[in-house]
Design a protein around this nucleic acid. Structure first.
Length: 360
DNA sequence: AAAGCGGGGAC
DNA sequence: GTCCCAGCTTT
């Protein structure tokens, strides 16, 4: 039997039941694909339900505010995805008169939709015979057919694409592409796959040559950057101060407390010597009520060493008012904040000293 | 071509 | 700790 026939037989028995497979609405499929970029199904599913519930159609999304879209996205990461979804929804409503793009080439014009996602939407919804090649597919093809090219270079990608196009069942591209994804997620998994029950075991190049752990060729290790954050959780009566991250950096468009970033850890004794501290708080009559231990927050390519300082002040300052938004402490919940901050606010010290401090 | 962008789960 | 997830955009 040929590849697509064996794959189809496997899929008939093993297909996953996923919420976005219950619909043929291109909008919902699109949302699911963007949510699932570099994100496991198990992590993305709850976000999919919430997103669709909050923004049921492309029109609802196009009319939304960026902060509301980001709030639904809070905790999922890669926040540019949410901003791109909104921008693309506006583009569909305003430039395309609400008509959802229905070809691979037109889908590619949506912000945040690249080759994989365009292929997925085009094939799943519009049955266009184009491949949808993600990490699962690179792994399957590299192993079964012994492709040593790197999935991380454009030349390598082209090799995989050619192989998949030739293998493809062009009369059922939706089933074929979905079957590959499930096969990669369930059977041909990254580590220690159970090859004894694999339908391709007899002609899998990697299995025969004991290269299952070698293929696909691995990505280069990324070097991580260490950063030191000190967040100032200021209490001025029932108010605190926050700002929206604007620069091209992590957490763009999310809110955070006043931040002192230093090259090295900022010692508690040195805090009040820091220029930024002086600028914001010197004339505020500050009283430090809590200084947290260091929290290590891991990102793909950065290690954030963070501390949280809870400070009571009796007077506001020009430095604070110029650069920060004064908000009710109890309203922090309505802003989109990084998981690092969310975690701290959910812990006991924040509850005790910041959110519900003792009333004097 | 390479770097930047989150967070979490499995081992 | 390491790997990598239904990747994309910018440099």
């Amino acid at each position: 039997m040929d590849f697509k026939t064996l794959l189809s037989s496997w899929y008939t028995i093993n297909a996953r039941s996923l919420p976005w497979r219950e619909t043929s609405d291109p909008y919902k499929i699109w949302v699911s694909e963007v949510i699932l970029q570099q994100t496991r199904v198990a992590q993305g599913t709850a976000y999919y339900h919430r997103f669709i519930s909050k923004f049921p159609t492309v029109k609802h999304l196009a009319n939304a505010h960026e902060d509301d879209v980001l709030k639904v996205w809070q905790g999922l990461g890669y926040y540019t995805r949410a901003r791109n979804l909104l921008a693309a929804a506006k583009y569909i409503e305003n430039e395309l008169n609400g008509r959802f793009p229905n070809t691979y080439q037109e889908l590619l014009k949506l912000k945040g939709v690249g080759q994989y996602s365009a292929g997925a939407i085009a094939s799943f919804v519009f049955k266009e015979p184009v491949p949808a090649i993600d990490g699962n597919v690179y792994r399957i093809i590299a192993r079964i057919f012994g492709v040593f090219d790197s999935p991380y270079t454009s030349q390598g990608k082209a090799v995989f694409r050619k192989v998949v196009v030739e293998l493809m069942n062009k009369s059922a591209p939706d089933q074929f592409n979905q079957a590959l994804l499930d096969f990669g997620a369930l059977q041909c998994v990254p580590r220690s796959p159970n090859c004894s029950i694999c339908p391709f075991v007899h002609y899998c190049y990697a299995y025969k040559n004991n290269l299952v752990d070698i293929l696909p060729t691995k990505a280069k290790k990324i070097k991580t950057r260490n950063r030191h954050f000190t967040y100032l959780l200021i209490r001025h009566g029932d108010y605190t101060f926050i700002s929206k991250r604007k620069s091209k950096d992590i957490w763009k468009s999310l809110y955070e407390f006043p931040l002192i970033e230093t090259e090295k850890p900022l010692a508690a004794e040195k805090l009040q010597d820091d220029d930024e501290w002086k600028l914001l708080l010197a004339s505020s009559d500050p009283e430090i009520v809590y200084f947290s231990p260091t929290v290590k927050h891991l990102l793909s390519h950065q290690v954030i060493m963070a501390r949280f300082v809870i400070v009571n002040i009796t007077k506001t300052t020009k430095g604070l008012l110029d650069r920060f938004k004064k908000v009710h402490t109890s309203s922090i919940d309505s802003y989109t904040i990084p998981t690092l901050i969310d975690n701290f606010l959910a812990a006991e010290p924040a509850e005790k000293y910041f959110l519900n401090p003792p009333t004097p």
